[in-house]
Design a protein around this nucleic acid. Structure first.
Length: 864
DNA sequence: CCTCCATTCCC
DNA sequence: CGGGAATGGAG
């Protein structure tokens, strides 16, 4: 008894000064294992890692101000409920050599280890529900015995009464015990007499440890999402694949944050318990965004939230897109320059004086001689009031139908009349009559809203078009005709660029044509010029004094640059960017940059150009969450791999995740994985190419498929709904519209081509014409290819494998296998080429290299 | 008797 | 050691 008093006394003093401090908490999530899972090695309970320190830790406790030389820190498993701590039914085991021991776990501390105890190799054994009661009883008994031991040294027993009490209590506890959350309990002990341990500190508890495997406490995670955007009106279904969730205990939250991470808007995804599929998927409907009148896409986030413990998942990006009508409203469909027949007629009526009628300063159109020659017959005809008022005359012009027979007839008359008119006007002969008549004729429209100017352009009657433009230039009031839109919204300028008539385009711009008017599909003349590959017209539009809107979006949300990337026109891409088009602008529909579009359309030369010479953000994600590189990877097949090579050259970041969120959270692993995939793919390219039989020209399959795709897109973009002309008709227009044509890629320096008659190869099915073309353009003043040149490019071509494609391209495919065995296949190839073509020039080789997309080698040759 | 899912077992 | 299939109890 005396001893016990001393112990109590010491205990009091010590407790006031001694402190048990948790230096390293255990991890918050840990997999509890069942007994059957504990054979052999098992995962051990680690300590929480610091953010800055990635070293593995274990739960660590320090005894501060310990009055004893040696003390013991004991660790046991308890419930996590702070209000109601008692021993947990689960076991805390600790591996000791080959045997596992149950808790309590004691670690001796002294000045030697700075009174620090590290609890290594602990595991939590999940007690099956059916055994929980028994387990609690066992623990209670031990606890009770321990209490009694303090008083009745050595011979403590438990009475039947106490035993029943314990069992009842255990029954109660069993019902409430949370089997998915535990906590560690630490307490300091000292050695008393006979090495009996006596507690001398308060109990200290760790924070809760949750069962990683349970849906109630496990990690919340969005693994995958089927779409990244929806309309701002919401109510669209989104499929989420998630880590194990409980359907009664999960929410989908959409939220928006400002620059300082404050949540400025949030709403819940709508779903029922039936929409949670087997704990691993949720289908929810998006809530509407706070504002359905947005005009630009809004980035928000989605995450899971668990109401019971407030746990949240990772967040994934999501985009609310503006409504189509808001996109359209933003762009004024009818600019102020837009004219209608009625408004011009009103103008003319109000201002019937002819004083303004005078030739403008410049003559814009060189009329052909035969047009300017007058026939007296016609002159008389036109001066005859009677004839001008006749029904015949009216019939000719009141309905300029597209019917073939009438077309020719109407054209014929129109042409004659216009000739006469023009010359009469020039000679100031019966001016008033002529002018009034002219105006009447030129303001007539067909059932499709075409004026005579539209009509002549549509039917390739360019002489008439020029004639009309010439006449318009004399008449300021009438010149407004140039901005009349037909029933599909096209101005004469739209038609002129589709027809690739650059001089007419120039003249139209000079007399006041507005290049920014949109047709029904939202296309400006610039869009049309790009679609039509009318380089001369693009040039005229860009250099005109008019402020051409480079960033105008079509109805489908594309800018001219996007279209240029889509059709694969390097020249158009180049001049647009040079004129100041924003390389990083995104299309309104999918959030794609020109780079994404070029990748999708498989235009390697565009991709290469964009990466080499522009400041395009190559890691930009579209609304689908993919970078251009990821789009390239997703393409699979041969075409993808060449693209990937180009990206590799320019250091695209394979680390950037797309939206298929990897289950593994560690960035490092992810990036390593992507990089490996990339390398894998690149390797396999080489494999495929090298095992290819030599007689096949690569790519021919894909290009045909690409062509089809282009056509479809073109159709959509250039024609739109309700357009009365077929694409064929549009294509059949004498302008250079060969989808997929990569002839621009072959010129290694980009020069604006002013000629209307652009060369356009109709197909690229064979290599021979191309290489012959490249080779035959030898000019005496050009540099000859030298050994030095070959030396400069051989390493590059051997590294990229480009020499093999060059071999194919120059009809030396059959030698690839042979050359591959040589020390420098590229040198061997060039020896062969120079043997066949002794006069081959540097420029020839550059062209050939451009043909096979070896831009790096081309630039190596350009360095002096 | 069915579905769901916590538990248990297996690789 | 982490993923996942099988089982069987509960509702």
């Amino acid at each position: 008894m005396y001893l016990y008093c001393i112990i109590l006394f010491i205990f009091k003093i010590v407790v006031e000064h001694t402190q048990l401090r948790i230096l390293i908490q255990p991890v918050e999530k840990f997999r509890f294992r069942y007994k059957s899972e504990m054979s052999g090695n098992y995962s051990t309970l680690l300590g929480e890692r610091e953010k800055t320190n990635y070293k593995k830790q274990v739960p660590t406790i320090q005894l501060v101000n310990c009055p004893f030389k040696i003390a013991v820190i004991r660790c046991t498993l308890v419930t996590a409920d702070e209000e109601n701590r008692f021993p947990h039914a689960h076991h805390l085991v600790r591996k000791n050599g080959n045997t596992d021991t149950d808790d309590p776990h004691d670690i001796e501390v002294s000045s030697e280890n700075n009174f620090i105890a590290k609890f290594y190799n602990m595991g939590i054994i999940h007690t099956a529900k059916k055994h929980v009661r028994d387990e609690i009883v066992r623990r209670k008994r031990i606890e009770l015995l321990g209490e009694k031991e303090k008083v009745q040294f050595g011979n403590a027993t438990i009475s039947t009464r106490e035993d029943i009490q314990i069992k009842l209590e255990a029954e109660r506890i069993q019902m409430r015990m949370n089997l998915n959350t535990v906590a560690l309990c630490f307490q300091g002990f000292f050695y008393g007499e006979n090495n009996v341990l006596h507690p001398f500190t308060e109990k200290v508890y760790s924070h809760p440890i949750n069962n990683l495997k349970s849906a109630l406490t496990g990690d919340l995670k969005i693994c995958r999402i089927d779409k990244q955007s929806c309309s701002c009106e919401g109510n669209e279904e989104v499929f989420l694949l998630v880590e194990k969730v409980g359907k009664k205990n999960i929410k989908v939250k959409l939220y928006e944050i400002d620059n300082s991470d404050n949540i400025i808007w949030e709403a819940e995804g709508r779903f029922t318990e039936l929409d949670v599929h087997h704990q691993y998927a949720i289908v929810f409907k998006t809530p509407p965004y706070k504002d359905t009148n947005i005009t630009s896409p809004k980035e928000v986030f989605i995450r899971l939230e668990r109401p019971t413990d407030g746990e949240v998942s990772n967040s994934v990006m999501f985009v609310y897109k503006p409504l189509d009508k808001n996109l359209n409203r933003k762009r004024p469909r009818l600019a102020s320059t837009c004219e209608t027949v009625e408004s011009i007629e009103t103008d003319l009526m109000e201002n019937s004086s002819l004083e303004n009628y005078s030739p403008m300063n410049e003559t814009f159109v060189n009329l052909d001689n035969d047009i300017s020659s007058l026939t007296g017959e016609l002159k008389e005809l036109l001066n005859d009031d009677h004839y001008c008022n006749s029904e015949d005359f009216k019939t000719y012009f009141s309905d300029l139908s597209t019917l073939e027979s009438e077309k020719n007839f109407a054209n014929d008359i129109l042409q004659k009349v216009l000739r006469t008119l023009r010359d009469t006007a020039l000679t100031d002969n019966s001016k008033a009559t002529i002018i009034v008549m002219t105006r009447n004729i030129l303001l007539k429209t067909t059932q499709f809203g075409d004026t005579a100017l539209h009509f002549s352009l549509r039917h390739k009657e360019y002489k008439i078009s020029k004639c009309i433009v010439s006449i318009l230039s004399f008449d300021p009031l009438l010149s407004k005709i140039v901005n009349i839109q037909n029933s599909s919204g096209m101005t004469p300028l739209h038609l002129a660029v589709l027809r690739n008539q650059s001089d007419i385009v120039k003249a139209l711009l000079n007399i006041g044509a507005d290049p920014n008017l949109c047709d029904e599909a939202g296309a400006t003349s610039l869009h049309n010029a790009v679609i039509a590959r009318a380089s001369g017209c693009i040039d005229q539009l860009l250099r005109s004094s008019k402020n051409v809107n480079l960033e105008a979006h079509t109805e489908s949300g594309w800018t001219a640059l996007h279209l240029a990337a889509q059709v694969g026109s390097l020249l158009a891409v180049h001049v647009l960017i040079k004129a100041g088009a924003d390389v990083n602008s995104i299309d309104k529909l999918c959030g794609c940059t020109a780079l994404h579009i070029a990748v999708d359309a498989n235009h390697k030369h565009i991709v290469d150009y964009l990466l080499t010479t522009t400041k395009i953000d190559l890691n930009k994600k579209n609304f689908g969450g993919n970078t251009a590189l990821q789009s390239a990877v997703a393409k699979r097949g041969k075409c993808a791999e060449d693209l990937i090579k180009i990206f590799n050259k320019y250091g695209a970041d394979p680390k950037i995740r797309n939206n298929n969120i990897d289950r593994n959270d560690e960035e490092e692993n992810m990036s390593r994985l992507s990089a490996e995939i990339l390398i894998d793919i690149s390797d396999s390219v080489i494999d495929i190419e090298s095992s290819d039989s030599d007689d096949d020209f690569p790519e021919s399959d894909e290009s045909s498929c690409d062509l089809a795709q282009n056509d479809q897109k073109l159709m959509q973009l250039s024609c739109g709904r309700g357009c009365e002309y077929s694409v064929d008709e549009k294509l059949d227009s004498g302008c250079d519209m060969v989808p997929g044509d990569n002839s621009f890629a072959r010129s290694n320096s980009v020069v604006i081509n002013h000629s209307d008659a652009e060369e356009h190869p109709t197909n690229r099915a064979t290599t021979i014409p191309i290489s012959q073309k490249s080779m035959s353009s030898t000019r005496p003043w050009e540099d000859k290819l030298t050994d030095d040149h070959v030396h400069r490019i051989k390493d590059i071509l051997e590294r990229t494998g480009g020499w093999e494609r060059l071999a194919q391209h120059t009809n030396h495919g059959s030698l690839v296998r042979l050359y591959r065995k040589t020390s420098s296949p590229c040198s061997a190839l060039f020896t062969k080429i120079r043997l066949q073509q002794p006069d081959i020039t540097l420029q020839n080789v550059k062209n050939l290299l451009t043909d096979v997309q070896e831009f790096e080698a081309v630039s190596a040759l350009e360095k002096q």
